[in-house]
Design a protein around this nucleic acid. Structure first.
Lengths: 230, 230
DNA sequence: AAGAGCAAAATTGTATGCAATATATTTCAG
DNA sequence: CTGAAATATATTGCATACAATTTTGCTCTT
């Protein structure tokens, strides 16, 4: 009555999911990190039931891995999964960008431009995690413009997992991708040049993939890293 | 020790998910049907916690819809969602069939052939639900052959949802699709003819979509149906 | 002192009780 | 008899208590 009566049922779990997701996207939580139930319960002021629900949702999105009787850990996608995620994106996003180009309204373009501006700003300010999160949102907005909710949802999950892949396999620590691929994409969308948008998106994803180091270490460091992760 | 020590933790929820999923795939549970917690608890001999977990998983796969304080219902995809599911499949499966054609081993072909045999048998025996389930599995096996786990998982969810779409929007009640599209696909895979496989899959999905009745009723029956659904 | 075996502590899995919400039934005014 | 308000019933939301499992730390032997 006063300001807002209690969150609608299930809303608190969603809130935890949102906050943890954001933390993972911004690389504030590293892959392999353990999330204790009681810990999270205390932080958010809820019982274990709600925390458990949140963990399960995040596990289904493959942001967490739940090991029986051991707990929940931030997921560590394998090299194979990393490849697969980008292959799936390469299958979905170019066509989606094509579709978006045929439907983009001036307002859509405006939204995208302000978004990229924020992205560059974050990058300039050295806010790497923030920039990464914004970059992901950019891809999502294009999917939203294409007006295919189901495909957009799939892309959302893939972009989400990409954050983990990048955390694990990005080549250079400090140098974030300051390409203008997103700007070029906006231009294509703005010009309603669907084939160009499709091609640019395809190339952009290839570029991203090429910036990952997806080679099997094949010697000690791999197994050591693996051992530390668990 | 004796035969099998208790299901590993979380395994019971997975079992409930599996059984309910199968029931939905075989159209033994109709869209809109309510699933009471206590009811399911009693059937499977578990507490509400486990049932709740199962419901949540199924909700995330969009086989169930959980309405706050009301309960869980078998999902009723809207016409829009129905279209989107098939559009997503049209985006993913042809390329996946292409990929599968380049990798299919003789054993894979054999598996697929026995599978289609079962499918035809079920159809001949009038086991419509069973046939539908097998038909879905066929698409999954192709995705598995392509050896892209992530994409296969996405396709699995889409095929799963397709069962609901078919339950709601299939034109003719009794006449199941007795086309030989699957046979033709196997032939293409067997011949390693990737472009043909891709084209056949594309056409097959278009055929499926064309057999759905996705027109808005636009008058009373729609709202009535909607009202009954809730 | 190093390692295996064992006990203690911590953590997760599950059931269940209580509170909140929705649905069904009854009651009563018109 | 109709319709709405009020009560009763059933169902879900959540926290918590207890059981099962893992992990940690300790002891005792070699």
């Amino acid at each position: 009555m006063l300001k807002e009566l209690r969150k609608s049922p299930g809303g608190r779990a969603a809130r935890i999911v949102a906050e943890l997701t954001e933390a993972i996207h911004e690389h504030r939580m590293a892959p392999g990190m353990k999330l204790g139930e009681d810990e999270v319960c205390e932080i958010f002021g809820v019982g274990r039931t709600v925390t458990r629900q949140a963990f399960q949702m995040l596990a289904h999105e493959q942001l967490l891995t739940i090991e029986p009787n051991r707990g929940a850990f931030v997921a560590q996608p394998s090299i194979r999964e990393a490849r697969e995620v980008f292959e799936a994106r390469a299958l979905l996003e170019p066509r989606t960008a094509h579709s978006a180009a045929t439907r983009a309204t001036p307002e859509d373009i405006e939204t995208l431009r302000t978004h990229v501006t924020q992205e560059h700003a974050a990058l300039a300010a050295g806010q790497n995690g923030q920039a990464l999160k914004l970059s992901g949102k950019f891809h999502l907005e294009i999917a939203a413009i294409a007006d295919q909710g189901t495909i957009a949802e799939i892309i959302r999950q893939l972009v989400s997992r990409s954050s983990l892949v990048i955390a694990l396999y990005w080549r250079r620590r400090s140098a974030m991708c300051e390409s203008h691929a997103h700007d070029a994409l906006i231009d294509a969308l703005s010009a309603q040049d669907a084939p160009l948008a499709e091609e640019l998106m395809q190339g952009h994803l290839v570029d991203l993939l090429s910036l990952l180091d997806l080679h099997e270490p094949s010697d000690a460091p791999k197994s050591l890293h693996e051992a530390l992760g668990r």
